[in-house]
Design a protein around this nucleic acid. Structure first.
Lengths: 149, 149
DNA sequence: TTGTGAATGCAACTGAGTCGCAACTGAGAG
DNA sequence: CTCTCAGTTGCGACTCAGTTGCATTCACAA
């Protein structure tokens, strides 16, 4: 019951006819409870704290599944933190990632310009957007204030 | 003279005090004349047609240089074409990449929403954007027409 | 023309992500 | 509740993009 009540990702999966294994359930739980963005290695490490036998390949296969099901988004966060990919649950609110190379911080920013972009692309180009990834590189407020000081 | 007249990238480099070697000149030329987006491997192959001795490491080091100088942008084109990175000269007009997973086509789309986004991020967040990468995944016009048919 | 710090080629390395295969298991049929 | 099997997992080997250390070469300022 607790699982069913909280397991929105799990629910979404079984709705799509995707078999819900112990490993997938665990990975979904970790993704759901993760504070920020996780890469594959971090996801594996976190999952292994609960089930030490889970394998790297399973993590990659599950991420692939979730990506193609549209349940998670893949980001690279402008490679400020490394060369790998990062993953986050797809949410309802459209948001943009702001990355500051000076301090390495990634923050998020909600704006309806994302929706407007999807509409403009549809209107002018006949292109039906299913996912939009926006990553902005620049100097964050804290860093620019520190410089002026 | 011919070089100086066309070599805007080269010019930009020497303005920044970056030494202009034979290899860099060649890579810049290839990037300038490339029809679309190139990944590191393609850039190396193209450059080797002129200078077969140029090395992979030099390509990566030069790309790193151009990225941090803000002269080229790094994209992954939503990994429709592969897992590597793609590079393109930074241009004046802001544009967005549209990728259709069905046919694998990447197209471009110019819109002033990019500029508006930069302004909104600055106004509401105090974040000074230096580069914006927008990649839209979806169904292109041709594919959606083919489906309806 | 020369001196020197920066850049190159080379070869070895790193690490993210993939793949084939044998063993295992979720969940639907009975 | 049990049986069955396609789908999934763990494992180990593999691929390949990108990096690094080092000896050699080169751009360019003086």
């Amino acid at each position: 019951m607790a699982l069913a009540a909280r397991g929105s990702l799990a629910e979404a999966l079984s709705l799509r006819g995707i078999r819900l294994t112990r490993q997938r359930r665990l990975l979904l739980e970790v993704l759901d409870n993760a504070p920020g963005h996780l890469n594959a290695r971090e996801l594996l490490q976190a999952a292994r704290r609960t089930d030490p036998t889970i394998d790297r390949a399973t993590v990659y296969r599950t991420l692939h599944l979730l990506k193609t099901s549209g349940l998670v988004d893949e980001l690279d966060l402008l490679h400020l933190e490394g060369e790998e990919h990062y993953y986050e649950r797809r949410r309802t609110g459209d948001h943009v990632h702001l990355g500051c190379p000076q301090c390495g911080t990634i923050s998020e920013f909600e704006t309806d310009l994302v929706l407007k972009l999807a509409q403009e692309v549809a209107r002018r180009e006949g292109f039906t957007a299913t996912g939009i990834r926006i990553e902005v590189r620049g100097i964050c407020k804290a860093c620019s204030e520190a410089q002026v000081r």
